[in-house]
């Protein structure tokens, strides 16, 4: 075996190794892209399902006399969607995101303040003999 042959074989091996490494990097990249999205989804979904059960039991305990305030207050707390609106407005996204984020902040702020104020107004009217 001449040194030239050895050099050629080494070069071929090196090439193969680099192709393999590229493949591996590709696979890892795909896995990395999927992993952080997939794992939290199952995790978040479990929380979602458990929260439905919590909601079910808590709401059945609400006295029928307070069903109107219940509706107003659930409306107010569902406006916690403001979190998404704030992220869209405040982070370095782009003009479209900022615009829609700002509109959403205004809309849900109406709800947050309106919902809690009207609930408070209703509840303060309920008095005992």
């Amino acid at each position: 075996m001449t040194p030239a042959d050895l050099a050629a074989q080494a070069a071929a091996l090196a090439h193969q190794a680099s192709v393999l490494a590229q493949n591996a990097a590709g696979v890892a990249a795909v896995a990395a892209q999927n992993a952080p999205a997939a794992a939290p989804f199952v995790y978040l979904f479990s929380i979602f399902v458990l929260a439905i059960f919590v909601g079910y039991y808590v709401v059945w305990n609400v006295t029928p006399a307070l069903h109107s305030p219940l509706m107003a207050v659930t409306n107010a707390i569902s406006s916690v969607i403001i979190v998404g609106a704030m992220l869209a407005t405040g982070l370095h996204g782009n003009g479209t995101a900022h615009f829609f984020g700002f509109i959403a902040v205004v809309l849900v702020s109406v709800n947050i303040f309106g919902g809690f104020v009207v609930t408070n107004r209703m509840l303060s009217m309920f008095r005992k003999k």
């Binding site: 978040l44 709401v59 059945w60 659930t74 569902s78 998404g84």
Partner: peptide
């Protein structure tokens, strides 16, 4: 609200959305 909560991975939104969703359904 829950759908948006899942999109942005926010726990408060997901839980609240589920509470409100089941509350409205029960009513």
């Amino acid at each position: 609200a829950s759908g948006i909560g899942f999109t942005i991975g926010n726990l408060a939104l997901i839980v609240t959305g589920a509470l409100v969703g089941s509350s409205g359904a029960i009513l």
